[in-house]
Amino acid sequence: MSIPFGGYASPEQIMRDRAEYARKGIARGRSVVVMQYADGILFVAPNPSRALHKISEIYDRIGFAAVGRYNEFESLRLAGIRYADINGYTFNRSDVTGRGLANLYAQHLGMIFTESIKSLEVEIVVAEVGDVPEDDQIYRLTFDGSVFDEQGMAVIGGQAEAVAGRLKERYREGLPLPRALDAALAALTEPGGERPPATQLEVAVLDRAREHRKFLRLTPPRLERILQEGRESGGGAAGGEPAGDATAEHAPDTTPAVPPPTAPPIAPEGDIDTGSGE
C-alpha cells in the first residue's frame, strides 16, 4: 500500500487505523444472534427489511449471518453459495463443510484486510448443523480474517459484548425453540427497551430434523406463534423476561459495550448501509 500524504506511517499504525475503521462501521448496525437450540441452530436478526437479508442459506446444512455493510457481505454470501454448490456438484453433497467455507472466507477477508486500503466492514457467522448437537459448528469471522470457533452461541455487530453478556445469562444447552428465541430476543433488547415486533425480525433455523435442506426461514405467522409460546413458557425459570424489567439487576448490562475510542475517529461519520433499510 502506498503511504498517504508522503509522510511515514508505521505498519502497526496502518493496521490499527484499518481495524479501527472497520470496527466503527460494524458497531453502528444492530446485533445478530446465532445460537444452538434443541433441534439445531437458530439465527435472529432485527431487520425491518423483508428484501435485504442478513441471514441466508448457503447449503444443505450451512447457514450464514452477517452484519456491517450490505454490499460487502452480500458479495461474500454469493461467493459462498457458488463455492458450496460447485464443490457439492463436483464431489458429493456431504463433502461441503462449514469449516471449508469458513476457511475460504478467512482467506478472502485476511487478504482484503492486508492488501486493500479499506478492509471489509463486515462480521459474519458460518454455522453448520450436524446430526447430533455435538457436531454443530458455529464459526465467527471478523473483518481481518480471524476465525473463532464458538461454543453454543455467537453475537456479531452492534453492541456485541453487551448482547453476548445478556445472552450468556439466558443460554442453556438444548433449549426448545420458543425458549431459545425468547432468550435471543431478550439479549437483543436493551434493558428497559422494547422488544422488536415480529415484523421487524428476520429469524431462521437450521433444523436437523428436516430432510434434504435444513435451512428454514420462519415466516411471520409461524414466528408470531413461536414468540407467543416463548412468552408463555419462558417467563419463569429461565429468566427470559420480556421487556427487560427483571434484567435491570444484572450488572453486565451496564458496562459499555465498546471501549471508548482512544484515538480520534478515522471512519467517516454518518450511517452505514446495513441492508436493513433503517
Binding site: 458479495s75 454469493l78 461467493a79 457458488r82 463455492y83 460447485i86 456438484y89 475460504l104
Partner: peptide
Amino acid sequence: AWMNSLFIDTGSSSFTEFL
C-alpha cells in the same frame, strides 16, 4: 481457476452459466 472468480463477476444466478 473458478475460485478466483468467486468474488468478482457476480452476474448471473444460473449455476450452469457460471460453470
